[in-house]
Amino acid sequence: MTDQTERVLPRPTPETVHFWEGTRTGELRLQKCDDCGKIYFPPRPFCPECGSRNVSTFAASGRATLYSYVISHIPAPGLGPPYSVAVVTLEEGPRLMTNIVGCDQTPEALTLDMPLEVTFEAQNDEITLPFFKPAA
């Protein structure tokens, strides 16, 4: 791991490939149960609330708030310290892990509940990661 300079990238599976197709085209895709209405993440082809396989995919607004985070000083592949490792709450409800970009990586700049918006960064031809930045 330590000799790796590139960020460790996801390997999409058949059940998640729609999410990674979405980020490539600038969409943050969530899933919704067509039976009970549950909106959920991470991707899977069934509803974690009621078990229905009758689910659909939609583009989220990209708006979120900062739920919690750490500012890591540990070198990680492709990530230069200090960098935030954050969990954000999407406007639609689910939470996801991300990095907060476009601001200082300090406790003063990163305040809980601050409004955020998604921003996409292509890592290679296949993988575009969703990051979040302070909302305009």
Binding site: R7, V8, L9, P10, R11, P12, T13, T16, F41, P42, Y67, S68, Y69, V70, S72, I74, A76, L79, Y83, V85, A86, V87, L96, M97, T98, N99, L112, L129
Partner: peptide
């Protein structure tokens, strides 16, 4: 591996600890 590791959520010091500020 898909939804945490790419953001640095790969080691206990950056995962166990995330809830604490909240």
């Amino acid at each position: 591996g898909q939804f945490e590791v790419p953001y640095g959520g790969s080691l206990p010091p950056t995962m166990f600890t995330i809830p604490v500020l909240r």
